[in-house]
Design a protein around this nucleic acid. Structure first.
Lengths: 70, 70
DNA sequence: TGGTGATGTCAAGCAAGCTTTACATGCGGG
DNA sequence: CCCGCATGTAAAGCTTGCTTGACATCACCA
């Protein structure tokens, strides 16, 4: 049961709402680089930020973030 | 939308399955101290571990981890 | 009594998330 | 042509997640 986060739908969801990375960052209370890093896969967010993202887009953590067995 | 993780149901779920912290840790591929730290609220897990926990208990991240606006 | 399993916690150390600052690129509009 | 906006990325630094190893307590049981 060792999971790794392999990708996410943040960019798709953000673009669908016509928001810039800076807009989303401001709404979530994080920096623009943090949003960018999550979208480009540089790193995976903390649990709190992942829940905030899912909640912001009115969906679930499991739907936004994809995992695979490592 | 700045969220903090305020608590979780890991201990309740684990006990309901009659597992020790060490059992759960082994099943998840982490150390016993990590499970203990999550249960006692010393820190909140990474996103990958949170998803693994929810999946292990056949539930969702949002049900296992509780958040509040900061 | 002594042994064992379960739990709590601490310390040191490495890895990862997030910050600020900064700079580069591409693009559409004036 | 220049501007402003959106995006990508990098460096340095702080904080937090997770590790191993160790030790203490408690309950239960032979």
């Amino acid at each position: 049961m060792e999971l790794v986060v392999t990708g996410n739908l943040v960019r798709e969801l953000r673009v669908a709402e016509n928001l810039s990375q800076a807009d989303l960052a401001a709404a979530l209370g994080v920096s623009r680089q943090t949003v960018n890093s999550i979208e480009t896969g540089r790193y995976t967010p903390s649990l709190a930020l992942a829940i905030a993202l899912a909640r912001f887009f009115a969906t679930t953590v499991e739907e936004v973030f994809h995992v695979a067995e490592r």
